[in-house]
Design a protein around this nucleic acid. Structure first.
Lengths: 162, 162
DNA sequence: ACTGAAAATCGATGACC
DNA sequence: GGTCATCGATTTTCAGT
């Protein structure tokens, strides 16, 4: 699907505040509320906008330990790796990567003991030969992506030196 | 701040759909709309909910290349590393980690040429001695975290074998 | 095809209990 | 926290460009 400048600005506004009213977004980009709604509906139907979510402080949900785990697998079919990792709810993201490892998964755990159990569970998957983990010491930055041309003003600055 | 079961369910609903009405959320969790709003306002004021954002297909914004870059730094002060990486808009997340590297940053780029320039720019930072990148081949899974006790039903299943 | 205007419905939100 | 009332937002319809 082709996005024009108005679509991109609407998306930027929604990334900045997903609960903004269509009227407010329209005021920012120069459209009426119905026109904004029609475009958002179109963007959602096209799969450009996948949904709207709340940004929650992970520690408030009980996630105080975070790790990135490299997986070395027997079979490197992406679908099989996905099936292996998706069943563990602590896995928040996973991708296949270049380099020695086959996949990199991002894991949240309530503490290091929990993390250890999760890594053991993942390592016990048939397709996983071994794992290599790095534990996150402190999260420095976490923001939404803007469009390549755009300035970074639309990025949600939830940067925190906790 | 202390979250009770109702707060957690409200957060789960907002993570599932940040544009849900307070009445809809209330129907799910068994509260009236004003009661839900009061709790959400409280959660926002407490910093538990940091904001609301749209989940956008990165490729639609022009991001087709993704990488994780390990940084080896001279000074490992988290604040200095944050200052080094935050100025690059392509960096979407960064954290200090255990292991050989000092930090791990997640980078989005429009293509591999762009990625190369970004990594060069980061590597040229005074605090960075060297970098080690892995390029993402395919994103398998990307979902929101639920609370440790909760089932993973609230996780947004944007899993795709692209 | 996409826009804005108008109208009806629905949601947000403050006052009060 | 619930109820109610008000105000604003959403969403459909319709017509203009």
């Amino acid at each position: 699907m082709r996005l024009d400048a108005l679509d991109q600005r609407i998306i930027a506004e929604l990334m900045r505040d997903a609960r903004a009213s269509y009227a407010d977004i329209g005021a920012q980009v120069g459209l009426s509320a119905p026109a904004v709604k029609r475009r958002v509906d179109r963007l959602r139907a096209a799969g450009v906008i996948k949904g709207f979510t709340a940004l929650v402080e992970p520690s408030a949900l009980g996630w105080t330990t975070e790790a990135y785990v490299e997986l070395y697998c027997t079979k490197t079919s992406p679908a099989e790796i996905l099936a292996c990792v998706a069943k563990h709810p602590e896995v928040v993201s996973a991708c296949t990567v270049t380099g020695e490892a086959d996949a990199l998964v991002h894991v949240l755990a309530s503490d290091v003991q929990h993390l250890e159990r999760v890594v053991e569970r993942i390592a016990a998957e048939p397709c996983v030969v071994r794992t290599k983990s790095v534990i996150v010491l402190s999260r420095l930055l976490s923001r939404a992506a803007t469009a390549p041309g755009e300035p970074a003003v639309a990025a949600a600055p939830m940067a925190a030196a906790r």
